[in-house]
Write a protein that binds this DNA or RNA. Structure first.
Length: 307
RNA sequence: CGCGGGGUAGAGCAGUGGUAGCUCGUCGGGCUCAUAACCCGGAGGUCGUGUGGUUCAAGUCCCGCCCCCGCAA
């Protein structure tokens, strides 16, 4: 089939890679404008990087549903694929291709609608999640399901690690769905909308740790926020990122520093016990073990993290 | 040319223009039934880089370059 691929981050690249190495023809790639800056250089989105490397035409619009419609229609694709694209599509746009717009979503719909399904699944301590391939409908993540695959979430798996696994599975599952569509044997199953859950897009500020919660849920929170947007707290008004924590003994006010020395590491009280913050990153510092951090920084006991 | 912090011992950090320091680790010794404990002693640095500038004197001030990081996207 003749396809147009729309996506932006690394997650989408795996699917694009599958398509490029298949019998399908990728007419063009649509990705977000190059507004991402890294240091002094302008860096392209991962999807754009990949497309350029493989000589695929790249199109970029602030709103593809408005500015891009004519270009897309002119290419007359059989089907349009979206993977973590980051723009809402108009009804008019959804009707361009004969087979419509097919989306790869990283959750078991109708659960975890929204743009950060992987992180939220980890944050909520889910045991499993998956990939859903659906035909995009106007309402966010509400389209009919074509194929769905489950995966287990491993204990102490971070969002980043799960991202990697799901991006591969996403590509494979997409291929399966496309071949079904091509052969005309695809079954479109309506979602049970009464069971739907929706979680908002994560922002930088979403990463602040609430130490009044249970140790368990804070651990899930940290895993879910890693590597982005990153769980963090404040110490002396400076941000301290937390990458890894394990349960420890102790009790105190939420966020209270119970231990802080290079032998024990940094132990902080939570709502139902305490956590040892193992791997942290101070502002302007590298990621390091909290024990190393404490060799050069003194934290007095009883200090409250956060706020 | 987006804003900002930083590169000093194996690790993490101090260091007001004037002998290079602290905590931990490490090595040796001591005390212990014993120790991640305690005591004594030692090793380990051309202070990111430049046959750069200022100075009687630069880790410290100025200039260039390299690298790391935070914020913002």
């Amino acid at each position: 089939m003749k396809l147009i691929f729309m996506g932006t981050p690394d997650f989408a690249v795996k699917s694009l890679e599958k398509l490029v190495n298949s019998s399908h023809e990728v007419l063009a790639v649509v990705t977000q404008p190059d507004r991402m800056r890294d240091k002094c250089k302008v860096s392209f989105s991962p999807v754009k990087e990949f497309a350029l490397k493989h000589g695929i035409k790249v199109l970029q619009y602030e709103k593809v549903s408005k500015e891009g419609i004519e270009d897309i229609v002119a290419l007359s694709p059989d089907c349009i694929i979206t993977v973590a694209f980051g723009q809402m599509l108009s009804k008019e746009f959804l009707a361009i291709a004969p087979f419509g717009v097919v989306n790869v979503h990283a959750s078991l719909l109708p659960k975890y609608r929204g743009s950060s399904p992987i992180q939220w699944a980890v944050i909520n301590g889910e045991k499993e999640t998956g990939i859903t391939i659906m035909k995009t409908a106007y309402e966010m993540d509400s389209g009919d399901i074509i194929v769905q695959k489950k995966v287990k979430i491993l204990p102490s798996e971070t969002s980043g690690e799960l991202f990697d696994r799901l991006s591969v599975l996403g590509g494979e599952t997409l291929m399966l769905a496309l071949s079904q569509i091509e052969q005309g044997i695809a079954v479109y199953t309506k979602q049970n909308h009464s069971e739907m859950t929706y979680f908002p897009m994560l922002k930088k500020e979403s990463g602040i740790i609430d130490f009044s919660k249970s140790s368990q849920s804070i651990q899930c929170f940290i895993l879910g926020m890693t590597p982005w947007p990153t769980a963090y707290t404040y110490l002396n008004k400076k941000i301290i990122k937390v990458f890894k924590a394990s349960k420890a003994d102790g009790i105190g006010l939420a966020g209270e520093v119970l231990k802080a020395d290079s032998k024990n590491g940094l132990v902080v009280a939570t709502g139902d016990g305490a956590l040892l913050l193992e791997v942290i990153q101070p502002e302007n510092g590298k990621k390091m073990n909290s024990k190393d951090y404490l060799l050069g920084h003194k934290i007095s006991l009883g200090e409250i993290l956060g706020g």
